[in-house]
Write a protein that binds this DNA or RNA. Structure first.
Lengths: 161, 161
DNA sequence: AAAATAACTTGCATAATGCAAATAAATAGT
DNA sequence: ACTATTTATTTGCATTATGCAAGTTATTTT
């Protein structure tokens, strides 16, 4: 209660568990990482590989392979950008959209159950708080953004851009 | 804003990034998983392997190896339980305690920075909300607890025990 | 048009994962 | 007391994930 870190440690652990083998839809069994990828592609407008890898904080080579397997699963399509043929634009296939929507429903179901233990007022408050928190994290540059290098206690003001 | 899942997706992603290469202390470079293990051992009173593995939702064989490497790093000690010699009780070494404390400080530092973008009232609200959320997740059995098997839509009542 | 840069992919080499089987200690059944 | 079962943890693979260095193809610089 007193300690911020304690609260967040517990929370992230629980969410980690929730996400563990996050979603099986039909025959497909997706990992949390894969679900995040689908989510992000759905959200953005035909993003490039780099864009998605960057916003998920995944190494581009790892991401390349993650995409390869999602393409093989026929959830994602890659098409060369007309503007720059080095770039691959990502989009969800029809199946991919369906899977993404189903996961969304599932997750909302889980969350509804969790929220059922709260009063309507508490629900409201919690949702608003998460929103505030997301906003605050977005503003922070010390954390929560893709970190390139070490962030040792010495706090060298390195700027990786 | 409207969609619970959306809020939580963003939040978990950001925390994932924050935790990524979560903590380097002195020469030690810890993963998020390792930091969670230290945290849990510090928190509990000489827990057994199974207890910690269970509460972290980690497969016991994977956990066994994670512990092996933390022992090799001299952050953790294993001692056979006097009551039952099959059981290994886990504890932090002096170095382990120091590392755990340092990580705690680091994380609180990050969180302080994030919270600096909120008003004092918002901070209060957010902390209280996380606490509420943790409580609600603890009550839920559909999620957030170690999940043994699939939770497909078909909901076959299989019992793997 | 050659040189530098950029977006992505592939080659390793390493680390993490988890099921099945092994080991070792405790408990049950007789 | 003595074998049989269960329990706690470890090891043997076999699979998958990771990321750096180097490669490929396309674009931009000069």
């Amino acid at each position: 209660m007193t300690n911020k870190r304690e609260l967040f440690q517990i929370m992230t652990r629980r969410f980690g568990l929730l996400n563990k083998n996050c979603c099986s839809v039909g025959g497909h069994d997706l990992s949390a990482a894969q679900s995040h990828i689908l989510y992000e592609i759905d959200r953005a407008e035909a993003p490039s590989m780099q864009q998605v890898a960057e916003s998920l904080g995944t190494d581009i080579t790892t991401f390349s392979r993650q995409i390869q397997s999602l393409v093989k699963m026929e959830l994602i399509e890659k098409s060369p950008s007309p503007a720059d043929r080095r770039v691959s634009l990502l989009s969800l296939t029809t199946t991919g959209k369906f899977v993404a929507a189903t996961i969304d429903t599932q997750m909302n179901g889980y969350l509804d159950e969790v929220f059922s233990y709260l009063t309507p007022f508490e629900r409201e408050t919690v949702l608003r708080s998460i929103d505030l928190l997301n906003g605050a994290m977005a503003k922070s540059d010390r954390c929560c953004a893709p970190i390139r290098d070490d962030q040792a206690e010495d706090t060298t003001p390195n700027d990786p851009e």
